[in-house]
């Protein structure tokens, strides 16, 4: 990572802090909505090179061979993409949680996808909005799309086809108490947005 892209120690601390606060807020809101206790890990913030991306993400999901990935873009003056990596074995237990009626709805492939996409949208929306709220920004999101279902990460993310060199990656693990379901939210900002993000963090630091 070149020097101008590197976050200073203060900036990094500030980002960690707003990520922590954001996830706390997001967890509380998601818990109210889902009526379950939500666990969000302490976010980890790391710069990542494009060629290391599959390996870094692979580490998050514990080197599971196949993952399901839902993607969304987020925009304010900082732009980026968020991926939710899910294990989709737990769909049946999420089914009622997401408001489906087991008596009248049928769990087919399309509604399975819908559960995954809906839940990903909730996680991404809550976590990123709460985080960027701390920077005084409100995000808009693209509709979520399923990038791949039970595919290998190397198949899904081909670094040679990506038009960036390095990115700042924020990762948080989401789980629901007493459920086996677990997901990883990964957020990337592009190189062009790093400068804006650094300025926003500096503003925040000045106010402190």
């Amino acid at each position: 990572m070149t020097h101008e892209h590197m976050l200073s120690e203060d900036q990094r601390d500030a980002l960690q802090e707003i990520a922590n606060i954001g996830m706390g807020l997001a967890g509380a809101r998601l818990a109210t909505l889902l009526g379950e206790f939500i666990q969000l890990s302490i976010p980890s913030i790391t710069p990542v090179r494009v060629e290391d991306l599959p390996a870094v993400l692979g580490k998050f999901v514990g080197d599971q061979e196949f993952v399901t990935v839902v993607r969304q873009a987020f925009t304010c003056d900082v732009r980026g993409e968020a991926l939710v990596l899910l294990g989709d074995d737990a769909i049946p237990e999420l089914w009622e949680l997401m408001g489906y009626d087991p008596a009248s709805d049928t769990l087919d492939a399309a509604s399975e996808q819908e559960v995954l996409i809906d839940l990903s949208n909730l996680i991404t929306g809550a976590c990123l909005s709460c985080m960027f709220e701390q920077l005084g920004r409100s995000l808009t999101f693209s509709p979520p799309t399923l990038m791949g279902r039970r595919v290998s990460l190397t198949q899904l993310l081909r670094p040679e086809a990506m038009a960036w060199d390095l990115s700042l990656l924020v990762e948080v693990k989401f789980s629901i108490e007493n459920h086996t379901f677990c997901a990883h939210l990964v957020m990337f900002t592009g190189e062009d947005s790093l400068k804006t993000l650094k300025m926003a963090l500096d503003e925040l630091l000045e106010c402190m």
Partner: peptide, 20 residues
């Protein structure tokens, strides 16, 4: 049941939701 959950998510999380 499903659609009111969807609305609730927007009211509570203050975020957009989508259907496809």
């Amino acid at each position: 049941a499903w659609l009111s959950k969807k609305f609730e998510s927007v009211f509570l999380l203050k975020n957009s939701a989508f259907t496809s």
